[in-house]
Amino acid sequence: MTTLIPLRKSPQLDSNIKLRDIINTLPKEVFVKDARKAWLTVIVNLACVTAGYWLIAISPWFLLPFAWIFLGTSLAGMFVIGHDCGHRSFSNRIWVNDLVGHLMFLPTIYPYHAWRILHNHHHKHTNKLEVDNAWDPFTPETYDSFSPTMQWWYRRLRSRFWWVGSIAHWASLHFSWWAHTGKDKEQIRFSALFVIVGAAIGFPALFLTVGFWGFVKFWLTPWIVYHFWISTFTVVHHTLPDIPFKPEGEWNAAEAQLCGTVHCKYPWWVEFLCHDINVHIPHHLTTGIPWYNLRQAHASLQENWGEYLHETEFSWSLMKQIGDRCHLYDVERKYQSFAQYSVK
């Protein structure tokens, strides 16, 4: 039997509380960057990725799924390092952040500046209905305006095929530098061409050395595992049946970042390989906290703001219920499933 996610009746955050008021309760040391910890993370992550490729090379066919999962999860860890770089919480030097970020994103062909700019938009507008760009649920009116094909895709991405959501996001938004202007356009074009050139060199090299099956074995399948985790992390970060999305006129930054972000516990090896990206509430309050200080910051939030926090644990039951219930969002009715909407 599946245990339902209980709808949480947490107290309403006082509207007079500002985001800065919450941030000021965090220990000052959580904002301190530690170069030794940052670079040690890079070394450990690269060692895990190298070990993953080695395991794929030596594993018999029946052990390949374990090697693929290990490597794909380690690649997600590289993304998390690039994520810190994009928020300038890896190094105090912008050029170091950008260099490391580009290199961490290169194996998965992810344009760094495009992701950085779009992701910062998400942080600025978290859970703002029809403005947020990270798993923002569509309203019934927006859904009705789609073509039948788009509706079909949206139904899949919001249900059993959530795990390809980040692939759709990556392909549709991160290479379109012409949709931007000024410095953003130049940076996004550079990052897109950087990974396109990398793929133009790397993919033929793979085909020539290990053939089509080698390409599938060493790159494509780990890449899909990587996107499974990126999709899962990002949808769970802000999606539970009782987490509200507010229209712009009702949106409050403190409420959105503290009460609209989810802390989710994953298996220890996922949290280790992905550098505690699941400890997400303090990161949304302020992106200046490096990953290795997130747990200390979260402990402080539990002590001072615990009644407002959403905390859960990863499970197939959790993903099934998100996929069954969190489809369309109406300001008055909150989340509606596709089934509920079809019989309105």
Rank of each mutant, 00 (worst) to 15 (best):
I196T: 15
F233I: 12
C259L: 07
V279C: 09
E186K: 15
I243T: 06
A254M: 01
H263M: 07
T261W: 05
K265T: 13
R295Y: 07
E186I: 12
I188E: 10
T181D: 14
G202K: 03
V270D: 02
A192G: 15
L294A: 14
I201R: 03
P267Y: 10
N252K: 09
V235Q: 09
G202Q: 10
C264Y: 11
L193F: 12
V236K: 09
D276M: 12
Q296D: 06
D276P: 02
V262F: 03
H298I: 05
P241V: 05
W213K: 10
R295N: 09
F194I: 09
N293R: 07
D276V: 08
S300W: 05
A254L: 02
G260R: 00
S300A: 15
V270K: 06
I289T: 00
F245L: 05
H283T: 00
Q296C: 01
I289G: 00
T181W: 12
I230G: 02
V225Y: 11
G182I: 11
I277T: 03
W229I: 11
L206T: 03
H284M: 07
S191G: 06
A253P: 00
K185L: 09
G202N: 11
G288S: 06
Q257H: 04
P267D: 09
L285C: 03
T287Q: 14
S300E: 06
W291C: 00
L294N: 08
P204V: 01
H237C: 08
S300V: 04
T221E: 15
I201D: 05
R295K: 12
H238P: 06
A200C: 14
H280M: 06
H227P: 06
W219L: 13
A299F: 07
D242H: 13
V236E: 12
A253D: 08
V262C: 05
G249Y: 05
W213V: 14
W268G: 02
K265L: 10
D184Q: 15
E186M: 11
C274K: 05
P222I: 13
Y226P: 04
I224H: 05
N293C: 01
I188K: 10
T261R: 04
P247C: 08
L285K: 01
L285E: 01
V236S: 09
T181N: 14
S300R: 08
H298Y: 14
I201T: 10
I289D: 02
G288N: 02
C259F: 04
S191F: 01
Q187C: 10
F203A: 09
H284A: 15
